[in-house]
Amino acid sequence: MDAASLAAYAALFLTAAVKAGTPLLYATLGETITERSGNLNLGVEGMMLMGAVAGFQFGLITRNPLFALTAAMLAASLGSLIFAFLTVTLRANQVVSGLSLTIFGAGIAGFIGQKLSGQVVPASVKAWFYPVKIPLLGDIPGIGQILFNHDILIYLSYMLAIGLGIYLFNTRKGLNLRAVGENPAAADAAGIGVSLYKYVHILAGGALCGLGGAYLSLVYVPAWQENITAGRGWIAVALVIFVAWNPYKALLGAFFFGGLDILGLYLQKFDIKVSQYIINMLPYIVTILVLVFTSIKKSKENAPPKALGVPYFREDR
């Protein structure tokens, strides 16, 4: 393979990596704001499945992508509402509640999805998600094709990542949210509504996980298959740690993990015999390395929110 075709092949790979990273990005952004509120919701996989099945089902019925995406967000945030009620109001264990949500969500998706197997997304919905080249930006050699020649949901995910970054680091409310995740008692004393913040961000986080699921069933695949998320919810949980609870870094991290997801496929062309199963380990290994290095360096910036996983009871103070 000569240099020019190698570059073209690499661009093709990177373009596919962005697409493969998009469902991860949505879920990661969702879990990031959830965990920033101090709640570890391990139900990502379940919420993605609920979003995927609701989006697909409503896409079939209404043939309208907006209804489909709304349904996906609503379904998944309904799941996260159960989690929020259990962990915030009833103070249940977060890990167990999250795992239960994954079982529940997988059950819902399996039950409804049984009648959807093999169905494909209607053309009127599909048409909405064709790649659109962005004028000017899309013409930059290399980068234009890789980043700016995609469907509308990918552009939305860029904007969302940047918007959430600004929200988290440059607004009053974002500061409050971080305070709730770091030290809820102090936040409470400062007059911040701890429970309200937790509820809002768990629900919004759920909605984003739902969007990630719907991206899989409506755009990425786009047909219904059993267990359509195939563990991507768990990769998103890893990714949140990898990007240190930072939406900006999530943008890059998701494309990196998305690239790893499809790397084996693209390496076949070079006769490089690396098992995809070994490559599939890499996201988790690098995540562990990040986790270990942050704890060794005691870096405050990249550490988990201090109160992550710890329930907050005002009465117990």
């Binding site: 159960i82 259990l86 167990v96 509640s97 239960s100 949500l101 079982i103 529940f104 969500g105 997988a106 059950g107 819902i108 998706a109 399996g110 039950f111 999805g113 049984q114």
Partner: peptide
């Protein structure tokens, strides 16, 4: 589908 049992499991856990 066995999924119905997963729903029931989840519900009981909740």
């Amino acid at each position: 589908p066995q999924a119905a049992a997963s729903i029931l499991q989840g519900m009981i856990l909740f």
